[in-house]
């Protein structure tokens, strides 16, 4: 059996929930492939993995994979994931969100989850638009872009999700694209292994709602745009701001050791127990 068929049989709810809801050419399918390849490489048991997703096209990913899956409310995936992880720290919790999901309605949860540094993996699929609701501008829609709620061009500045996560205190921050698939496999695997809060921003495309409206062509054209615009972080560090204009860096942007919440909480438990026995 081909490797890909084996993975499909092992990890997808192929007999239950397909076809999926995504448009032909969507980046979410590429991410789904990268995710199951990465998980397969970690040799984790399926029962140990919890996939938590938010609302939007990316949120549907949890339906298709054969793990413990939790499809939450819009923006709140990280809050549910926090409860799951703290109640059973042995579970490997992977959170899938979209750009609007993670940084607009869920922006507060996103920065606080990073600051708290729970051992979670947060994947943010950034396609610069609210796709499922029909193409409204999101916090990552570039200035001047067209959307159904910015017919004359977006007048707001965009967030850089990876930089936001780094500033908020995440232990690991990476950025990949759905074009650079082998890099994406690698980034996801590293993020799952990382102890602490790890964020992977996945630059994707919504040709249906964003590309079409902004004259960026079809899905293939948008993948080529990712190829053209992405610069490996190692190289990006040697480039000037002018050279990086209209480009973005990919790779592991931040990797640092910070106190992990569950470890710290173990100390709290010990101290609380000691204090209780003293009270008695």
């Amino acid at each position: 059996m081909a490797e890909v068929t084996k993975l499909i049989h092992k990890y997808l709810r192929h007999d239950k929930k397909f076809p999926h809801v995504w448009c032909p050419g969507c980046g979410n399918g590429i991410l789904l492939g990268a995710l199951i390849r990465a998980i397969d490489r970690t040799h984790l048991e399926k029962d140990e993995i919890v996939i938590v997703s938010g609302i939007g096209c990316s949120g549907r990913l949890s339906v298709y994979v054969d793990f413990n899956t939790l499809h939450t409310t819009h923006g709140r995936a990280l809050t549910f994931a926090t409860g799951v992880k703290l109640a059973n720290p042995k579970l490997q919790v992977i959170v899938i969100m979209g750009d609007g999901d993670a940084t607009a309605i869920g922006g507060n949860h996103f920065i606080h989850a990073a600051r708290r540094n729970l051992n979670l993996t947060a994947i943010v699929v950034n396609n610069s638009i609210y796709g499922m609701t029909g193409g409204q501008y999101s916090p990552t829609t570039p200035y001047g872009s067209l959307a159904t709620t910015s017919l004359h061009g977006n007048i707001e500045q965009a967030f850089s999700i990876a930089e936001l996560a780094a500033m908020a205190g995440a232990s690991m921050v990476s950025r990949g694209t759905v074009y650079h698939t082998s890099l994406l496999d690698e980034l996801l695997e590293k993020a799952i292994h990382k102890r602490g809060f790890s964020v992977v921003e996945v630059i994707s495309h919504c040709h249906t709602q964003y590309g079409r409206r902004n004259k960026m062509g079809n899905a293939a054209d948008m993948l080529l745009w990712q190829k053209k615009s992405a610069v490996r972080i190692e190289k990006a560090r040697t480039m000037s701001d002018e050279e990086m204009q209209d480009k973005f860096s990919i790779g592991v942007l931040v990797d640092r050791e910070l106190p992990v919440y569950t470890q710290e909480y173990r100390k709290v438990r010990e101290m609380a127990k000691k204090a209780m026995t003293q009270m008695r």
Binding site: L70, R76, T79, F80, T82, G83, A87, H109
Partner: peptide, 15 residues
């Protein structure tokens, strides 16, 4: 909002 999300997550994990 987050508090409510977290207690649901914890309950799903069996607590």
């Amino acid at each position: 909002i987050a508090s409510m999300g977290a207690i649901i997550g914890a309950s799903l994990a069996g607590t």
